[in-house]
Simulated scan of single mutants.
Amino acid sequence: MSTKFHLLIVDDDDKIRSLLKSFLQSKDFLVSTAENASEAKGMIDFIKFDLLIVDIMMPGMNGFDLTREIRNFSNVPVIHLTAMDEKKDVIYGLEMGADDYIAKPFEPKELELRINNILKKSSVKSKNKTLQLNNILLDLSTGSIKGLDKDLSLSENEVKILEILSSKPGESFEREFLIKSLGFNQERTLDVCINRLRKKIEKNPKVPKYLKTKRGSGYVLWID
Rank of each mutant, 00 (worst) to 15 (best):
T130K: 15
V90P: 00
G170P: 11
K109N: 11
L148H: 11
I136F: 11
D149M: 11
Q132Y: 01
N157S: 11
K209T: 15
E202C: 13
D139R: 08
T130A: 07
I164C: 03
I91L: 11
E174F: 09
R198Q: 03
L131Y: 12
K212N: 12
E202G: 15
E95K: 12
T213L: 08
K160I: 04
I136Y: 12
S181A: 15
A103Y: 09
K212Q: 14
R188Y: 13
P208D: 00
G170Y: 01
G93M: 06
A98T: 08
T189D: 03
L148S: 14
I201R: 01
R114K: 15
E163W: 02
K199M: 09
L133W: 11
K168S: 07
E187M: 01
V90M: 13
S172F: 01
R198F: 06
M84L: 14
E187R: 15
T142K: 12
K168E: 10
E107W: 03
R188P: 04
L182E: 02
S181I: 03
E110W: 08
K146F: 03
T142E: 11
K109R: 08
K104I: 09
G143N: 06
L211V: 09
K121D: 01
E176P: 00
G147I: 00
I115H: 08
E112R: 10
R175D: 13
L140E: 06
S144P: 05
P108T: 10
D99A: 04
E176L: 09
N204Q: 09
K206W: 03
L178K: 08
K88A: 04
Y210F: 15
A98N: 04
K146G: 00
K125H: 13
G170Q: 01
A98Y: 04
F173I: 06
K120S: 11
L162F: 09
I194F: 02
K120E: 12
L111W: 04
N195I: 02
N204F: 07
R188W: 04
N204K: 12
E187V: 02
T189C: 01
N134V: 06
R175M: 10
L190Y: 05
N157L: 05
Y92S: 13
G97V: 03
S181W: 03
F184D: 00
G147L: 01
N204L: 08
L111F: 07
R114L: 11
L154T: 06
L190H: 04
L154W: 05
G147T: 06
K109Q: 13
T130R: 12
L190A: 08
K199D: 14
D89G: 01
K129N: 10
G183K: 04
N116G: 09
K146S: 02
L138W: 05
V192M: 07
G147D: 07
N195P: 00
L182A: 04
C193K: 15
L178Q: 05
K88V: 10
N128R: 15
L178S: 05
S123C: 06
G183S: 05
V124M: 15
D151F: 13
R196T: 04
D191A: 02
E171Y: 07
S123H: 12
E163P: 00
E202K: 00
L148E: 09
S126P: 00
N185S: 11
D89P: 07
I91Y: 13
S141H: 15
P105C: 13
T142Y: 03
V124Q: 14
D191R: 14
